[in-house]
Nucleic acid binder design. Structure first.
Length: 807
DNA sequence: GGTGTAATCATTTTT
DNA sequence: TGATTACACC
């Protein structure tokens, strides 16, 4: 045991050996968080406090889960296969498969990924004749997911106006459609599982008794539903070990609720809050910059990183004239570093938004430097792979209409839009899936549809004895997919990917311990199963409390889940030594010897859409904090005076975040222009992002090292003022928190406007919305507005131009 | 039913 | 600017 605990610092040791009760570990960037988490599990097991079956450890990504398993196996001689270590979605899927009847799902329910969900909603709306101008399907999806993540079913969603009532109606129809088809989306996995445990006292008791220790990674990223799920599993007596970093919360936009940390501390009666502040990654100046920057955020739990590594090199700051020049600088700098012996994969170039990568990529291509961009299309998302999966899904579950529609006419079978419309009508009429409605269709449509259903049925029958890889091979052949792509000009890669799908199936079967020859559609216990069969108690499927849950998925269902829940590697050209390009979001959790953070410009970073409300701005700041703390030894931060975006040249002001870094840890590679001269002292309407939107008359990329103030700001502004008549522009007029706002000449005008909660309003940038809250008075008065298209924002009435509109 | 062109529209993203 | 998508057309 001393082995396990050796080399832990005092804070880490304290965390690992905490008593049997809930605890919150504030783990700073590079503080050994994963190590603490896995060592904690190993320690609990090794000291006999818990058996491996009694642990539930949950992460957000499959990668993190795999890493945890790998480290655990390295620490302890145990078989981790039956352990409940996985993502929220993966664990919920497992539970729902085990208790599919109690959860009200077919045994072979399918999982919709984001694209599937969107097409399901589109199909639904088409059938219901809903105006997709007024209700863009993407917004409907957002609405549904958001509701589910709040734990709300349609009946529980409050709808005050007709617009929202329609959305709720769509939500309800969507749920019914999913239920008919036997499919669940990502959010549904969590909500279903949560409801299953809520409604079934025996199941709840079972799992609560089993999982005495629940460990959570990246706790700051949990949403409301995930928090509720954890709380339910924890019950009254179990210990939840939550590890997270509020300063690295960068996913509020997708539902993450940092507030869960504070709630957790209170509701779980946390007595032990441990801060891991010793950083093992970055040199001193880099940490100084990170600490100083993040101290500008309010509402922090409070943490300061420290290192023994010494100051190291100062953070290099570079001002470029244009984005092209910024890229050239970076590439030249990298070439010099490589000449000094640095390897390419130790260098990362980070950016706020994907569009920024293009210029950098071009420059890299020009000098012939290999690079790798994160975040491309992933294996299971490829068109041909999705097609093959759709056939497999139909074999497993014929009612999956999303899969049906996807391949009913691919390869082409002469089934056109009119046939499908007729079929969809029949399905709606008889309240059944499209496959089931085929017999009700007539004429030519009926016969070609009938042939397709026969094809699927034949596939289903003939693959029954086949193993999973054999099934995949059979399907890509008999579906006609291979033949189809053989006739296509660039079909070779696609065929290659289809063959790769067979390999993926074989690998999956191997990893899961199903046995390579096990029939794909028979539930088979793992060969060395410690797993006990399910026992039926009063109609409930209950698992023996002392044994791991049986493998409850057939190889095929398991593989299809796997394909939805783990879309595969999203790095192009993995493997070779290459410069790493990615968004700051994608960089979270990674580290590099040398990091370039690019585009530190107002409007870009912080992004114009986020900078308008204080919470958004703080999240942007955390994003910058994440970016800075990726660097181990050398950090560059660059910004440009002008940048090509959406086909137009934008003129930028350097990011406020630069002013928030301690001068003592910086080294300006270009002369530092005075920010005051840029922002203040001008009587024209200068402001945040002013130059981002405005356009100086005429001059292209004005030369480097421009003097203070002068150049930008004049000229273009009126264009934006004009159209809406009464004054200020959109995005740069919102409340900006602690940061002083530029003095607007007509500030007081808007402040006098009376608003009320519930008041429908119009904003020139965000469109129509409803006021959901008001606070403050006079110049500080703020309104929270729920915009139809842009979600909730806090806006300062003194500067935001909100126009009341009629109800 | 596949191909070509016009219109549209552009944070961040894992499951 | 460039990628994606919708729709007209052959």
């Amino acid at each position: 045991m001393s082995d396990l605990l050796a080399n832990l610092n005092p804070e880490q040791l304290a965390a690992v050996t905490l008593p049997d009760e809930s605890a919150l570990i504030l783990a700073g960037a590079g503080s050994g968080k994963t190590r603490v988490l896995t060592t904690r599990i190993a320690w609990l097991i090794q000291t006999g406090q818990i058996s491996p079956n009694g642990v539930l450890a949950v992460t957000f990504t499959n990668k993190a889960a795999r890493e945890m398993v790998a480290r655990l196996e390295a620490m302890l001689p145990i078989n981790t296969r039956g352990m409940w270590i996985g993502t929220f979605h993966g664990l919920c899927n497992r539970m729902l498969r085990a208790h599919y009847r109690d959860a009200g799902l077919p045994q072979t329910f399918q999982i919709l990924d984001t694209a599937d969900q969107l097409s399901a909603v589109k199909r639904l709306m088409k059938g219901l004749n809903v105006d997709d101008e007024k209700y863009p399907p993407k917004n409907v999806v957002y609405f549904i997911n958001n509701a589910k993540e709040q734990g709300l079913r349609p009946a529980q969603v409050e709808a005050t106006d007709s617009f929202n009532r329609k959305l709720v109606e769509l939500y309800e129809a969507y749920d019914a459609q999913c239920q008919r088809e036997g499919v669940v989306d990502f959010a549904e996995l969590l909500l279903r599982c949560y409801e299953l445990l809520t409604m079934s006292a025996p199941l709840r008791a079972h799992y609560q008794n089993r999982f005495r220790h629940v460990l959570v990674d990246e706790f700051q990223d949990t949403n409301r539903l995930q928090y509720a799920w954890l709380k339910l599993l924890a019950g009254e007596h179990n210990a939840v070990f939550a590890v997270g970093d509020d300063d690295q919360s960068i996913y509020a936009f997708r539902g993450a609720n940092v507030g869960n940390m504070a709630d957790f501390e209170r509701e779980f009666r946390v007595r032990h809050l441990i801060k891991l502040e010793q950083n093992y990654r970055s040199h001193g100046f880099i940490l100084d910059a990170a600490n100083e920057l993040i101290s500008n955020n309010s509402r922090r739990l409070g943490k300061n990183l420290r290192t023994d590594a010494g100051h190291g090199e100062p953070v290099r700051v570079y001002e470029a004239a244009t984005d092209t020049q910024e890229a050239s600088f970076i590439v030249e700098e990298i070439r010099a570093l490589l000449n000094q012996g640095l390897s390419r994969s130790e260098v990362a170039i980070l950016y706020r938004s994907n569009a920024q990568s293009r210029v950098i990529e071009h420059t890299l291509v020009n000098v012939g430097l290999p690079y790798r961009v994160y975040g491309g299309l992933r294996f299971f998302e490829r068109q041909e792979v999705k097609h093959a999966l759709a056939y497999l899904r139909l074999i497993d579950n014929p009612n999956d209409d999303t899969a049906f529609v996807r391949v009913v006419n691919f390869p082409a079978r002469g089934i056109g839009a009119r046939s499908l419309e007729q079929l969809a009508d029949a399905a709606r009429l008889y309240q059944c899936s499209m496959a089931a409605a085929v017999p009700y269709t007539t004429g030519k449509a009926g016969s070609s549809l009938g042939a397709f259903v026969k094809l699927i049925e034949r596939m289903r029958a003939e693959t029954l004895p086949l193993s999973l890889p054999e099934t995949v091979e059979y399907v890509i052949r008999e579906s006609g997919l291979i033949a189809h792509y053989e006739t296509e000009r660039e079909g070779e890669d696609r065929i290659e990917n289809l063959r790769e799908l067979i390999n993926a199936a074989a690998a999956f079967v191997g990893e899961q311990g199903y046995g390579l020859n096990a029939p794909a559609r028979v539930i088979a216990m793992a060969p060395n199963a410690t797993d006990a069969p399910q026992i039926d108690v009063g109609g409930l499927q209950i698992l023996d409390a002392d044994t791991p849950v049986a493998d409850v998925m057939t190889p095929l269902s398991g593989f299809l889940s796997h394909a939805s829940l783990e879309a595969g590697d999203n790095q192009a050209q993995a493997g070779q030594d290459a410069i790493q390009l990615m968004t700051v979001h994608a960089a979270k959790g990674l580290e590099f010897t040398v990091v370039f953070i690019t585009g530190l410009e107002e409007g870009l970073f912080p992004h114009e859409n986020s900078a308008v409300d204080p919470d958004g701005l703080e999240e942007e700041r955390r994003l910058m904090y994440v970016a800075i703390t990726r660097a181990k030894e050398r950090l560059y931060i660059s910004f440009t005076q002008s940048r090509m975006l959406h086909g137009q040249t934008r003129y930028n002001v350097r990011s406020r975040f630069l002013e928030e870094l301690p001068e003592t840890s910086l080294k300006w590679l270009t002369p530092k222009a005075d920010a005051g001269a840029r922002w203040g002292g001008r009587s024209d309407n200068a402001g945040w992002g002013r130059d981002w939107f405005g356009r100086p008359g005429g001059d292209e990329a004005r030369g480097y090292g421009r003097g203070s103030g002068g150049g930008n700001g004049n000229g273009g502004g009126d264009r934006y003022v004009g159209s809406s008549g009464s004054g200020r522009r959109g995005a740069d007029d919102a409340y900006t928190g602690n940061t002083p706002l530029p003095a607007y000449a007509n500030k007081q005008r808007a402040a006098e406007t009376g608003f009320r909660v519930g008041q429908p309003v119009f904003h020139t940038k965000f469109g129509e919305g409803t006021i959901t809250a008001l606070e403050g008075a006079g110049d500080d008065a703020r309104a929270q507005v729920n915009f139809r298209r842009n979600g909730q924002k806090w806006l300062a009435l003194a500067v935001a131009k909100l126009q009341p509109i009629e109800d």
